[in-house]
Amino acid sequence: MTIGNDPGALASAILKVYESGDIARVDDLISPDLIDHNQPPGTASGIDAVRVLVGAVKEGFSDTRIEEIFQGLTTDGWVVSQWRMTGVHTGDWFGTPATGRSVSFTGIDLWRAADGRMVEVRHAEDLFQLQAQITA
């Protein structure tokens, strides 16, 4: 699939990377200089944070599906994506051992693209909703 400079296609492709766990694809879609305004503590750079999270989703969940609920483009070039992830908690998730429970949670990403890759992101995931499902 050729994405080119289409920010919406880039945002959708990134969701597919999280769904598939294809860490190698991250370098095609994300700038090495990604500015992540919500970067997890202890990660060296924005792109490293994406790699860590893609790997964690792949390790922690099976049957992962990510549905893009909404996508829009702002007048100043940001892509807004609301999504829902479903899966089964079959591996370690940041210290929480596998429970075998089904999960469903949502999030919102705001991406900015330049030169065919994402260069900036703001995001909010409902991790409270997820944690409640795997620790209840």
Score class of each variant (00 low, 15 high):
22 D>A: 15
57 V>I: 10
40 P>I: 14
114 A>T: 08
124 A>P: 00
48 D>L: 03
121 V>L: 12
95 G>V: 04
88 V>Q: 12
53 L>K: 01
122 R>A: 08
27 D>M: 07
69 I>D: 15
92 D>F: 06
51 R>M: 10
49 A>E: 11
132 A>M: 05
114 A>D: 15
134 I>D: 06
77 G>C: 12
83 W>Q: 05
77 G>D: 07
91 G>K: 02
7 P>N: 10
33 D>P: 01
23 I>R: 14
72 G>N: 07
100 G>T: 10
80 V>T: 07
70 F>H: 12
113 A>V: 08
36 D>Y: 03
59 E>S: 08
122 R>P: 00
70 F>V: 06
5 N>M: 04
76 D>H: 06
86 T>G: 12
38 N>M: 08
39 Q>V: 11
69 I>G: 01
107 G>M: 09
125 E>S: 13
101 R>V: 10
81 S>R: 01
27 D>A: 14
47 I>L: 05
6 D>G: 09
34 L>Y: 05
87 G>M: 01
115 D>Y: 01
27 D>I: 07
20 S>L: 04
109 D>I: 11
102 S>R: 15
23 I>F: 05
29 L>H: 08
69 I>A: 06
112 R>K: 15
7 P>S: 10
92 D>P: 03
93 W>L: 13
84 R>A: 04
135 T>Q: 12
136 A>V: 13
127 L>C: 05
79 V>C: 03
124 A>H: 10
57 V>H: 09
5 N>Q: 14
131 Q>G: 05
44 A>S: 13
26 V>K: 01
124 A>R: 11
24 A>Y: 01
117 R>H: 14
116 G>A: 08
51 R>D: 09
112 R>H: 13
22 D>F: 08
21 G>F: 04
136 A>Y: 11
130 L>R: 01
100 G>C: 05
77 G>Q: 10
131 Q>M: 14
51 R>Q: 06
40 P>F: 13
81 S>D: 09
88 V>Y: 00
11 A>P: 07
41 P>G: 07
5 N>K: 11
21 G>R: 03
80 V>S: 02
112 R>Q: 15
15 L>R: 14
80 V>Q: 01
60 G>Q: 02
85 M>C: 13
100 G>M: 10
89 H>Q: 13
100 G>A: 11
4 G>R: 13
106 T>N: 14
121 V>H: 04
78 W>D: 08
43 T>V: 03
97 P>R: 06
98 A>C: 04
132 A>Q: 13
